[in-house]
């Protein structure tokens, strides 16, 4: 197990370097946008004098590299600066929004992952049957429709024509009860489930079917093991590594790819905040959001690698 710990530490170190590179990219990408923060803040009232004073005050006359280092130094200590719009600290602005997005992601993941893996096992068992083909077509359809479109279709059928769920999910976390919360956020969660299930299900199916030609699968069949048990007990434990990788990638997508879904359902998550901040040129918030997304990807991929190692018996039980 010492090896695993070593690998984790090494990957964490690499992750930090990746994050640093990304922070540079984000900072200078924002620099490339036309206009600067002072112009954005002052908007119509941007006279030359005002601009000069504002730039002086915000330290914008310093070279970009110095400002980057200052920003980085702040970010390392958890201080991402101050939102230009609300004048509140970026951490306070993002905190509740990120928590809301995490809640929605977990809600969707708790439904999507078990459903995807169970469906994957079933279609692997019934491969080339009608059920397999229908599932194939349906999942391909959902995977190839944009998520905002899926969202609107769900709103049309489950909120407008059959008013089962509310079309808007603009919940206020302090004011709603637990049940109401799940009820109000069901449609955005369902949209995201539909988007990610297909990918995970198809990978589960593929990696199980990949193993069915192995001699140990033939051996299990020749021991009289029933077909479902051959798949669940003999194929699945050896198929985890690719499945875990796809699951992690999709979990990351649930957090970082929700922008459009949040906008469609007016859900107060980090995606909507990002969209608002970009339109309003609230650069400190944009930078912090991007950094959080990057960190999410890195951490989930690391978790997937560790998971893949932990499911490999050769690594878990060395000679």
């Amino acid at each position: 197990m010492g090896d695993v710990l070593g690998i984790v530490l090494k990957r964490l170190g690499l992750g930090l370097i990746t994050l640093l590179v990304i922070s540079i990219l984000i900072f200078f990408a924002v620099e490339l946008l036309p206009g600067d923060i002072a112009e954005a803040v002052l908007g119509q009232g941007a006279t030359a004098e005002n601009l000069k004073a504002m730039r002086e005050q915000m330290g914008l006359n310093e070279p970009a590299i110095v400002r980057y280092l200052e920003w980085l130094w702040g970010a390392v200590r958890g201080d991402f600066g101050v939102s230009l719009i609300s004048q509140r600290s970026v951490a306070d602005t993002i905190g509740p929004r990120f928590a809301a997005t995490l809640f929605l992601a977990c809600y969707a993941a708790v439904i999507a992952v078990p459903v995807a893996i169970t469906l994957g096992i079933i279609v692997a068992l019934l491969r080339d049957s009608v059920f397999d083909r229908v599932a194939n077509v349906l999942t391909l359809t959902s995977i190839s429709s944009p998520e905002f479109f899926l969202g609107y279709v769900l709103v049309l059928y489950l909120a407008v024509k059959n008013p089962l769920f509310p079309a808007l999910a603009n919940v206020n976390f302090q004011d709603v009860g637990t049940f109401e919360l799940y009820y109000k956020t069901f449609l955005p969660a369902l949209t995201m489930v539909l988007v990610v299930v297909a990918h995970m299900m198809r990978m589960t199916r593929a990696s199980i079917i990949n193993l069915l030609a192995s001699p140990y699968i033939e051996m299990a069949r020749l021991k009289g093991t029933p077909a479902w048990k051959v798949i669940v007990k003999h194929a699945l434990p050896n198929a985890w590594a690719p499945i875990i990788n796809v699951v992690a990638l999709n979990l990351a997508y649930l957090i970082t790819g929700v922008v459009l879904v949040e906008v469609v359902f007016v859900y107060p998550g980090i995606g909507q905040l990002l969209v608002d901040s970009v339109t309003k040129r609230d650069f400190p918030v944009v930078q912090a959001c991007c950094l959080i997304f990057a960190a999410t990807f890195i951490l989930l991929n690391l978790a997937a690698d560790v998971g893949a190692i932990l499911t490999n018996p050769r690594l878990r039980h060395p000679k």
Binding site: S214, P215, Y216, E218, M219, A220, R221, L222, K223, G224, T225, P226, K233, H234, P237, N238, P313, R314
Partner: peptide
């Protein structure tokens, strides 16, 4: 037929290393 396999007729494969499931 399946009920015979493993109980009344058994099989020993060429490569035991490949025919034992690595996960169990």
């Amino acid at each position: 037929r399946r009920a015979l396999r493993g109980s009344r007729i058994a099989y020993v494969a060429q490569s035991a290393a490949a025919s034992f499931n690595p996960a169990h």
